[in-house]
């Protein structure tokens, strides 16, 4: 695993924040990835949403073309587990109206109690899951 690097974490985070601000200043939209994907799949006004998603995939491709490809995602879980997790993330983010970007970044930046609640709940839930998966019940 790559060592903890606070500077690239802060700079990378700042870029995510900048992307959110630009999308609001220019298009008046919230940069929530689950909402953008969900509405691109089921809603109207798909054009800008598809453009955003294309940018999201193109960024690591551009980095790869300049010799800095994304590290291969390391996922030791079984395929069944990966599929189950994907179903939960898709259904849950749409039911709860957002994910780490929409609630976690954009919502907290607006100081929205609804988004702060959602973020605390999904973080706490994920922490419990990881504790159980990695350390078992009661260690």
């Amino acid at each position: 695993m790559a060592p903890f690097d606070p500077i690239s974490a802060l700079v990378g985070g700042a870029l995510i924040g900048l992307a959110a601000v630009l999308l609001m200043l220019l298009n008046g939209r919230i940069a929530g990835v689950s909402g953008i994907l969900g509405e691109a799949l089921t809603g109207d006004d798909r054009g800008w949403r598809m453009a955003f998603l294309i940018g999201l995939v193109a960024a690591p491709l551009l980095l790869g073309a300049t010799g800095h490809p994304l590290p291969t995602p390391w996922m030791p879980s079984s395929f069944a587990m990966v599929v189950a997790a994907g179903l939960l993330v898709g259904f849950g983010t749409r039911l709860g109206g957002g994910c780490t970007s929409g609630h976690g970044v954009c919502g907290i930046a607006r100081v929205s109690p609804r988004s702060i609640t959602a973020t605390l709940v999904f973080m706490a839930t994920a922490m419990v899951v990881v504790a159980i998966m990695r350390h078992g019940f009661g260690g």
Binding site: V33, S34, L37, L53, L56, V57, A58, A59, P60, L61, G64, P69, L70, T72, P73, M75, S77, M81, V82, A84, A85, G86, L87, L88, V89, F91, G92, T93, R94, L95, G96, G97, C99, T100, S101, H103, R114, T117, A118, T119, V121, F122, M123, A124, T125, A126, M127, V128, V129, V130, M133
Partner: peptide, 28 residues
């Protein structure tokens, strides 16, 4: 809101992927 956040948290905790990084990782 709360039920959705719990379900999302379950999936996120299982494999460590949320929607943004999952889509960006399609590049790999």
């Amino acid at each position: 809101l709360v039920a959705g956040a719990v379900l999302f948290g379950l999936g996120w905790g299982l494999v460590g992927l949320c929607p943004g990084p999952a889509i960006a990782n399609l590049a790999t």
